[in-house]
């Protein structure tokens, strides 16, 4: 019996086993359930809307806002600088460029907390790092940043800073979202192009 036949038997044996491996490990959760659970009960995964407003005012480039609502809602209005990844096709590999990166903090938001938390748990479970949720979603954003007014007589410096921050974010939000649809579409397309160009790089 020559070496080739022995080797072939070994290969076929391993191959049959591989064919029956239960799932594609690269496309499933990498974390163990208890690891994922202990991460998800921590409060460190949340950013408040005020923090997000500050990121926007400072044009902080270390974070990336991810809008998990559908494209229609995203087009109507969104937090400036967001990327739209509709939750309905969240598992599409084309989003990996945004989700699987180490440099930026990904902050998920939806109208409420729920969809953002689905997205958070799935992407954290898949082994992507740096995932956060904007607590309260757009409802909280609108209530706090867009609608809150200062009421009272004396304003403390802390309150003053807080309201100035909200006011500036509100201004940016209104200006960007009041652009005509054609300009918005151009802007989003340009953003997508940029991300796909950044794809790759040996690590």
């Amino acid at each position: 019996m020559n070496a080739r036949i022995k080797f072939s038997i070994l290969l076929i044996g391993v191959g049959i086993m591989m064919a029956f491996l239960p799932f594609n490990t690269a496309r499933s959760f990498q974390l163990k359930p208890d690891e994922l659970l202990s991460k998800s009960v921590s409060d460190d995964i949340y950013f408040s809307v005020d923090q997000v407003a500050r990121f926007i005012n400072n044009e902080d480039t270390t974070f990336q806002l991810i809008d998990v609502r559908d494209a229609e809602q995203f087009k109507a209005f969104n937090i400036p600088g967001s990327v739209n990844i509709p939750f309905n096709d969240f598992s599409d590999p084309k989003w990996e460029v945004y989700l699987n990166q180490k440099g930026l903090k990904n902050i998920y938001y939806g109208n409420d907390d729920r969809t953002a938390c689905y997205a958070w748990t799935i992407s954290t479970g898949m082994g992507y790092g740096n995932n956060f949720v904007m607590k309260g979603g757009l409802n909280e954003w609108y209530k706090t940043v867009m609608l809150s007014q200062f009421e009272g007589e004396n304003i403390t410096p802390r309150e003053n800073a807080l309201f100035e921050n909200r006011f500036n974010a509100r201004k940016t939000f209104t200006q960007i979202n009041s652009l005509p649809d054609s300009l918005k579409t151009h802007y989003f397309n340009a953003k997508h192009l940029q991300a796909s160009k950044l794809d790759g790089g040996c690590e």
Binding site: R4, F7, S8, L11, I12, V14, G15, I16, M18, A19, F20, L21, F23, N24, A26, P93
Partner: peptide
């Protein structure tokens, strides 16, 4: 494997069969 629409494991098996066949052919 994504392009062919089969799982990674099945693709591995297909490639192994191809390899075994080619080894035979090459001899």
């Amino acid at each position: 494997d994504e392009w062919m629409g089969v799982s990674t494991g099945v693709f591995t098996f297909i490639l192994i069969v191809a390899a075994v066949f080619l080894f035979w052919l090459s001899e």
